[in-house]
Design a binder for these strands. Structure first.
Lengths: 345, 345
DNA sequence: TTGTACGCGTTATCAC
DNA sequence: GTGATAACGCGTACAA
């Protein structure tokens, strides 16, 4: 990657001292004007000269140089999986909103399963950030956490969501509690043949709070378990999995779906098969995206406290960024079981 | 932002020379080993010593210093709006896939309407990138383009999607052609009262290829136009807008929806109102997300060539990054009208 | 209020 | 094959 020195990058691009020369002033003063600090006094006249010269030359401070010398970049890194879910989209949106009211900018980078095995966070670490928010990396979060002190020492780190690192600051969502509640709800409505549905390409297929709640509650009730696996979240693949069960006559009375996107897709598939959601097969989703409420058959879901999660996370991160000796702050939020038609029937 | 020097950032964090001292070797050699260059010869023994020392100290090269001196960061910036649509999620996913096969990492930053008016791309520009991909910033793309040479000179820039800058490299999608085709299709099936549906908080409400195709084709046919506006993409708000039309008895025979998410939501709302999608009201969406195919009433859509768009964009960007004097490359792709039940009835 | 000079941590050149 | 050393562009003590 560093094969050749890149002349073109800086060639022709004006530097602070070019502006200084143009304005008949020292480079230091250019810095003073352009760093936007209000605590320094500069004569209005020189300020104007500097601004004019900078404008004329089209000068932009080099962010790398700034970062190197100041130790700050004004960036917050959001580390997450780019596997899309509407819930993730919603979280990014909220976080953006929170940060837009500060001076910080958000840089989102992909952290997927690759990193868990390779144990190299090389790519995400290329983004020079003042703080890191790690969101819901079910697989990688463990690696993150364990390696944080080694990989990104002194970079404030907050994990957020259903998976977190105990070692640092975190805002967790106790999805286990929510999943337990959902299972109890299903069992209390008399369902016995209950399946768990998740993609087999993800860890969720046999681990994590949702899976464990499912296994735990079924075991406690003395009921056999069964998993409906599909390759990845896609209507066609979800349909394939359900049709197979349907044709084999082994559709359960209820399905605990790994998230709302899956639950919604499942409800459409079942409808297409002439199976009534809520009556013939109950469905439960996770996350609480808006669409669950407006489906033909509104879907019971375990809603995550997105707003609170995001704003707390920012508070925790900010306190670490302001004072790196501040103790980590930790909080666990409860999700909310929202009961709708899909489990009432 | 640069009020105080941040000691803590570098304090305690080992540098190249710490590793050098620890390995009884010079700093230069540490660099040579750790920059992963294969064209330099280093004795296996010292290489081992360096790696061991680096591992032991938990040394991580400082990305800012690297960037400053080498002129490269290994980062590609993806500038887009964080207003979510499933299509956007899909595009990010594809781009990730393309880049994962290279040495580059992706840093996604939000560019929304704010920047258009403020004319400051301060925040996105904080991320030190080797190249920029600007995706579908309907409003900001104009500002991007005009200011690029001033704001980010020498940083290769490719605009991608339905909006692009003529000045630089781009991979455009001729949504106008697709929208024209969709309108012709609607008109050819005998529909006359056709509405356009978009959020009034977006430029799409009264500009852009979709709107212009709508206005153009209706005008040419001598038909009156009408817009169904809603605040933003949300099932509840879309429902509100449609119910109002329904109650007033002014539902059209067809609706050209700004994207698939809106079309899908509309079809559910109409279904709830007892209005048959495809028969009573035809629907057309844009983008071609998978879900349009699997709705209760599959939806006609103008499918964007996501794969081709992403891989071409990467090629264009790469050629600029390898040789900044290379001429910009430009390509316009055609979307594909996919006709389904929602316009057949 | 402004200028001088140093250092941030790295890569690259040029000796050895 | 390895070691000095000069940049890279900027922020900021310190001096003026």
């Amino acid at each position: 990657m560093y094969r050749t020195r890149v002349q073109s990058r800086s060639a022709g691009r004006p530097t602070r001292d070019d502006v200084a020369k143009h304005a008949n002033i020292s480079g230091a003063t250019v810095s003073r004007v352009l760093s936007g600090r209000t605590d320094l006094s500069i004569s209005p006249e020189t300020r104007a000269r500097v601004l004019e010269a900078a404008e004329k030359l089209g000068y932009r401070p080099n962010p790398a140089a700034r970062a190197l010398t100041s130790g700050r970049t004004g960036l917050v890194g959001l580390w997450m999986s780019f596997d899309y879910s509407r819930y993730r989209g919603q979280v990014v949106d909220h976080l953006r909103t929170v940060l837009s009211q500060t001076e910080l900018a958000l840089a989102v980078t992909d952290v997927d399963k690759e990193y868990t095995t390779v144990h190299s966070f090389d790519r995400p670490l290329r983004v020079p950030v003042d703080g890191i928010i790690a969101f819901d990396n079910s697989a990688s979060i463990e690696a993150f956490a364990r390696e944080h002190d080694r990989l990104a020492p002194n970079i404030p780190f907050v994990s957020m969501g259903a998976y977190w690192s105990e070692a640092q600051s975190f805002v967790g969502v106790d999805l286990r509690a929510g999943a337990d509640e959902a299972m109890e709800h299903l069992l209390s409505t008399g369902r016995r043949r209950i399946s768990y549905m998740a993609p087999w390409t993800s860890d969720l297929i046999d681990s994590g709070p949702r899976y464990e709640a499912y296994i735990g509650k079924m075991g406690a009730a003395g009921l056999p378990t069964s998993t409906i696996a599909f390759e990845r979240v896609s209507y066609a693949l979800i349909k394939e999995a359900l049709v197979q069960r349907h044709d084999a006559g082994t559709l359960p009375e209820a399905i605990l779906c790994m998230n709302d996107d899956v639950a919604i897709a499942a409800s459409y598939v079942l409808e297409g098969l002439g199976v009534k959601t809520g009556q013939d097969v109950a469905l439960v989703g996770f996350d609480g995206i808006e669409e669950t409420e407006h489906c033909p058959c509104p879907i019971t879901t375990v809603r995550q406290p997105v707003e609170e999660m995001c704003s707390l996370t920012y508070q925790f991160l900010q306190s670490q960024m302001n004072d790196s000796t501040a103790p980590p702050r930790q909080r666990i939020l409860k999700p909310e079981l929202v009961i709708r038609e899909s489990t009432r029937g």
